[in-house]
């Protein structure tokens, strides 16, 4: 390392300069010619966040492992958008905690009883009784399937 070699001159003859020099920084080119006729019509660009995320503070992303929800259009390896601020009403697809594990199911409520349903005939429905511990972690609003 040749740190000493380029020891700057200013440090040896350090002095304080009292004059403030302001130089303009041009961030855009100086226009020469006609302004773009589209300029007045430019609006904001489309933003997927705006479309898909209503409540950023309550929104989380999770990844799906398995095929028990393919009937709802949720495939293995999809990314789900989960909004914790939404009420888990009957018919919603939810992230539930069953036996300490995150799982994705459709919530069906009938009066006081409710069940967690898979959207794939190969998987059984989980009936929720008072004893079985189940907590709804959040409501799924969207599934992202990247090809």
């Amino acid at each position: 390392m040749s740190l000493r070699a380029d020891y700057s001159i200013s440090e040896i003859y350090g002095f304080e300069q009292k004059i403030r020099v302001l130089r303009p920084l041009f961030s855009s080119g100086v226009s020469a010619g006609f302004p773009s006729p589209a300029e007045d019509y430019i609006e904001q660009r489309l933003d997927l966040n705006e479309l898909l995320i209503k409540n950023p503070a309550a929104t989380f992303f999770v990844r799906v492992n398995g095929d028990s929800m393919i009937g709802a259009g949720i495939n293995h390896n999809d990314i789900l958008i989960v909004d914790r601020s939404l009420e888990p009403v009957s018919g919603k697809i939810v992230i539930a905690i069953i036996n300490g594990e995150f799982t994705v199911k459709k919530l069906i409520k009938h009066g006081h009883s409710c069940k967690l349903v898979a959207e794939n005939p190969a998987y059984p429905t989980v009936e929720l009784t008072e004893e079985s511990s189940c907590e709804i972690w959040g409501v799924v609003t969207c599934s992202i399937n990247q090809f």
Binding site: F60, F61, R63, N65, G66, H76, I79, A118
Partner: peptide, 16 residues
């Protein structure tokens, strides 16, 4: 980093 790094987001099972 569950909430700030894509490869780290939590996994939910869809296999039971």
């Amino acid at each position: 980093a569950y909430t700030t790094n894509w490869p780290d987001i939590p996994v939910v099972t869809a296999s039971f």
